[in-house]
Design a protein around this nucleic acid. Sequence first.
RNA 1: CGCGGGGUAGAGCAGUCCGGUAGCUUGCCAGGCUCAUAACCUGGAGGUCGUGAGGUUCAAAUCCCACCCCCGCAACCA
Length: 564
Amino acid sequence: MTKKYLITSALTYINGVPHIGHLAGAMLNADFYARFLRAKGEDVLFVGGTDVHGTKIEVGAAQEGLSLKDYITKYHEEHRKVYEGFELSFDAFGNTDSEQNKEMTWRIYEGLNKNGYISEKITKQAYCEDDKQFLADSQVGGTCPYCGYEKAKGDQCENCTKLLEPEELKNPYSTISGSHNIIFKDTKNLYIDMDKMQSHLESWVESKKGLWPDIAYTTAKKWLKEGLQARGITRDLKNGFSVPREGYEDKVFYVWFDAPIGYIGITKEWADKDPVNRHWEDWWQDPENVVHTEFMGKDNIPFHSIFFPGMLYGSGENWTQVSFLKGTSWLNFAGGKISKSEHRGVFLDDALAEFPADYWRYWILANSPESDDAVFSFENFTATINKDLNDVLGNFINRVTKMTVKDFGTNVPALGEITEAEKELYATLDTLIKQYTDHMEALEIRKALADLREIWVSGNNYIAKTEPWKAVKTDKARAGTILNTGLNLIRLFALLSSPVMPAKAQEILALFGKNKQVVWPEEKAEVLLQALKEGDSFVAPELLFQKITPERKEELKVKYKEGV
RNA sequence: CGCGGGGUAGAGCAGUCCGGUAGCUUGCCAGGCUCAUAACCUGGAGGUCGUGAGGUUCAAAUCCCACCCCCGCAACCA
């Protein structure tokens, strides 16, 4: 039985407007990988969506005067659209508030409970009599007992940075309503006893050493080293799933608990649409045959490497656990902290309005914050787009097609005798394509993109060496051979670029007619470069990529407050 | 304070695990070519590899020690 590939990308919280950092952290890498595997003919299920539970959503809905349901629908849809704009090829896309997810959440909870991993604890929590609700630590304001700062929060004082408990605050008030009518009430909540899983998780994480990226492995190890503790899984809130247990009628599962289960819930929701052909169990309960790769930003690593695996393990079922955990660092903005209200930084809707999605995809993947935080700047963006996409790739396509049309018309010229120059090209490509493919399989994204660029360069190199513009004057058949090879290179470049720039790849393949299907090139270069035959017609394109002018660059820097 | 990541040519990065003439892209300079988006190809200059005339070694960017700087995280934040 062949392996199946389950790919999940961290769900985005709908409270915020997504920016390029979200794309770089999880979704784009995941899409890149999914497209690559599909092209190779693998069985892939790419799951993504939004996370819609928790306090912030509740507050957001109240502020906009919408019901929870309407608020969730509105923002979920907004996120979905923008991801579509970036050509993210999710097979299953949903949110965490579905019936299916509730079913899975309850199922995992019951399993944990049956196996003795759930306990009950009573704690004191701030309750506002005017708001008629419990407040999260950070929703409690007051005067810091250490420095006297009047706007300290219940978890930490921003002024003196001391860590606080809400009860320590003098003159506490609700940051929701401003009411000072705060009391501290006993409340009981359910906890998952992570400490009981410590040794199991330790050996499991240890088995990932050398397999996972350093950042994922070290982060997981850090948490284990500090010792796992019981963690609350219910809360005194409204926005979330109800808890199937007596005495918990006014509480819901805490968002972190049902959010990762959302991957499973979303898969089931997808499967339920076509119950004959789709089975969620094929993906989530078949660890022997499913390779599960998770993509996320570094903030999410603890949840995916420790808590979620622990939840699945503790539930006692045979779940598909994560095989490869691709955690990435942050993509920051050169102008400072990205902020929608201050209109600083690049948000995804703005990004699409400025440039085609593929420009962003190329830049972000080429500069993926894999080992360290990366910085986006229009300075760098402009240089990269102009150089790589325009001068190297775009110009190659343009020079080859223009030359061919001028001397041979719009049909592919005959491939004549193969010379040393072609053999050298074949050898170079065989090496580079192998390297590129290997880097993609290992999810070394920056390196893969550097390989791709080098592959494009090899085309220009070949043309520079063979000089078809000279050959055409003395030996037209030879010129035909070179341009035949050049046209085949264009097609090959499109195939190889498709995981990075799907739309541009399609545009290029369309020049050569009907067969636009992306099949990963696995034959020898000599074979790959004979796909287009003598007489096949093609269309000479207009410029496929447009340069960003210095003026435009300056405008963008001002508009998005770069370096301010 | 603690923990994690980082500090390598003007800029952005690889190399560090398994010590052995310091690499890539861009930028800069020169040459080639003139089919092409003033593009393409070739060559060159440019680095005390954060600091310590520290330790180990025949040999250290790479291992050990101390210190400095930057970024992030600390579990009712999702």
